[in-house]
């Protein structure tokens, strides 16, 4: 285990040390201490590392992550795990807006709540939020899954493409082209697996599924008021 103390080292030194593991991996277990809401912690990793960030992180924590498993013990700012490709990111506290934005792969787990635009333009990753999510979550989301164990704010799934959304609590309102869909056996199975992977103990049968009505996929003048 290697520890980097941000009271003594800079974010640049931390990221460089983690990036250096891409060429030659000398240490798989990393711990980051002295964290005081710094931005851009553990961004652009490309190695199967285990990184434990002890404290609150600022913006874009674990941004563009590949392969690494990153645990943040605390809250995170905007854009946690944005554009993640693979690996996993777990946040024990709350996440600010745009959590998991545009992420292509991997798993993001937020144990608290996530703010607005959670999973915006999602491109294939899985996001599991134990608490609630803010407005415009999954706006223009293309692929992947968002699971919300609490409630969802206004305009959930606005202009959605192929992302699947499961919500256990209430949904304040659905965005344009987002509709409630039947929860079939395959969806229960998918959700069961995902909850299990996220280590979240919830009953899959208690969730509702939302997805795209696919009415806005091609421009039709009859839908002009939705554009």
């Amino acid at each position: 285990m290697k520890t980097i103390d941000l009271e003594k080292s800079s974010v640049r030194e931390l990221n460089q040390a983690l990036h250096d593991q891409h060429n030659e991996c000398t240490e798989r277990e990393w711990e980051v201490t002295g964290v005081k809401g710094d931005h851009n912690l553990a961004v652009g990793l490309d190695q199967s590392l285990s990184v434990h960030i002890k404290g609150h992180a600022g913006y874009y924590c674990a941004g563009m992550n590949k392969k690494a498993n990153i645990l943040v013990e605390g809250n995170v700012g905007q854009g946690v795990a944005e554009n993640m490709m693979s690996g996993s990111v777990r946040v024990t506290g709350d996440a600010s807006q745009s959590a998991g934005a545009t992420a292509h792969g991997g798993l993001l787990v937020v144990e608290g709540n996530a703010g607005a635009r959670c999973g915006i333009s999602l491109k294939g990753a899985d996001i599991v939020v134990k608490g609630s999510v803010g407005h415009m979550s999954c706006f223009m989301a293309q692929a992947g899954t968002l699971v919300v164990c609490g409630d969802a704010g206004e305009a959930l799934g606005d202009s959605l493409y192929e992302t699947r959304i499961y919500v256990k609590g209430s949904v304040k309102s659905l965005g344009a082209d987002c509709v409630e869909k039947e929860m079939r056996a395959e969806h229960i199975e998918h959700l069961t697996e995902l909850l299990h992977r996220a280590g979240v103990d919830e009953d899959p049968a208690a969730f509702k599924r939302y997805g795209s009505a696919r009415n806005l996929y091609n421009f039709k003048v009859d839908h002009a008021s939705s554009y």
């Binding site: 974010v11 640049r12 990221n15 460089q16 990036h19 931005h39 851009n40 961004v43 652009g44 600022g58 913006y59 874009y60 941004g63 563009m64 854009g79």
Partner: peptide, 12 residues
Amino acid sequence: IKIQELREITDW
């Protein structure tokens, strides 16, 4: 901050 992120990812 976004630009800093891009710089960090590409090691400046």
